[in-house]
Write a protein that binds this DNA or RNA. Structure first.
Lengths: 223, 223
DNA sequence: ATAAAGCACATTGTATACAATAATATTATC
DNA sequence: GATAATATTATTGTATACAATGTGCTTTAT
């Protein structure tokens, strides 16, 4: 009987519920806790060395976050993702990323432009390593700069939450080296349009970017 | 010392945490619990006749929902909403409502078209009552039909969550009878464009609709 | 041998008890 | 009288205890 090794993510003086929340969240995103897997309170409490109270509160949060599904009188399980869910998520994400880019065109500062340029270079370097996790992280950073440049905190939070849900699938997408060159080109275009303050073209570029992701992820699911 | 009368919203066999969640949520949305007001666990537990456990779990959910803010080692308070927050929320909502309308144009069924027409008539009737709550409810129903017609569950959930945050302010907007005729006209236009499957114009119409709300709400805050 | 009844167990839901901490009031000392 | 030290209290954070309920297994009766 092999147990996925949940590593407690300890941050001194963060309430245990948040520690547990982060731990379970990571476990789900990394795939250590698989969709459909039951999350039993006592079991988790023992494994993480805490009582049921913080576990329960963390589960409440994960539930609202959409990463966990409650089954009445049965308990929690890791949310299953259907093809329809994924379509819904990507549809919304496309729209919000598009908004973010267009806001960024208006609101980006000079410093942020330089930052964007730097993260884009980092991304190109990351691609040469051929390590999926490294590339994924560089990609996240690039998009993060754009998001933050939108100066809309709510938007940042919502897009991150959506991105979270497709993280596992995007990782597969990024592993496929056939996509690398296109990713770089798309990033460059997006960056240039933002730099020029050309919202119209920047929107189109990011929408294409997301569409390509979507096609790829959906074709994965069809296997 | 006058206490706002939180009415427990009892739904047989719903866990207490959800009952408490709904109760507090309504209290906040209706303004019985005011922004900045502290939510103390024992206090609430006594008033609602339950223990601290369900109260705490409800607070965790309200926190993720954004209706409550946690202050470290101090507890929860009803979320304060700043002008900037409001701008952020409306900016995102505008974009998502626009998406919903355009999806609805593609995916709406005949039944839903009739439903939309009916809720629009209901809205016009509600306006004649001059009762803000009645009008607000009819307005919510109208928008709900459009949202559901988008056939995107995630989108429905996200827009509802955003709408929640501006509920109180929109109520003020709706109270002002000078806006009524324009609201009706906007609704009619939106409905017609959706009926005709004209996504382009439908988007513009709903964006104008939200923009008008935004202007009005922001001018309220400036008083 | 099979089906039904009942019992034991596992698990969630709720309440309470205990610990830690921060804010406030009180007292003692200068 | 003012200030610092201390005690008290209010409140959150965490653990445990108790209640209710559903599930699966065992036992018994037909």
């Amino acid at each position: 009987m092999e147990e996925p090794k949940l590593q407690l993510i300890i941050d001194e003086y963060l309430p245990l519920r948040d520690v547990v929340f982060n731990t379970l969240r990571q476990g789900i995103l990394k795939g250590e806790l698989k969709p459909g897997e039951r999350l039993m309170e006592i079991h988790l409490a023992n494994r993480l060395g805490v009582s049921r109270t913080p576990i329960r509160e963390a589960i409440r949060m994960l539930e609202l976050e959409g990463l966990v599904t409650m089954i009445p009188r049965k308990g929690a399980e890791v949310a299953r993702i259907s093809k329809l869910d994924l379509r819904d998520v990507l549809e919304v994400r496309r729209s919000l990323d598009s908004l973010a880019v267009s806001l960024a065109c208006e609101r980006i500062t000079e410093e942020e432009k330089q930052m964007l340029s730097k993260t884009e270079e980092d991304f190109e370097k990351a691609v040469t390593t051929r390590d999926a996790t490294t590339i994924a992280e560089a990609d996240v950073k690039f998009h993060d700069v754009i998001l933050k440049a939108s100066k809309n905190g709510r938007l940042v939070q919502m897009v991150n939450n959506l991105a979270e849900r497709v993280y596992r699938y995007r990782l597969e997408y990024i592993k496929d080296s056939r996509n690398h060159q296109r990713l770089i080109e798309e990033h460059r275009k997006i960056m240039e349009y933002i730099g020029a303050g050309d919202a119209e073209n920047a929107r189109n570029a990011i929408e294409t970017h997301i569409d390509n992701q979507e096609k790829n992820i959906i074709s994965q699911l069809e296997l």
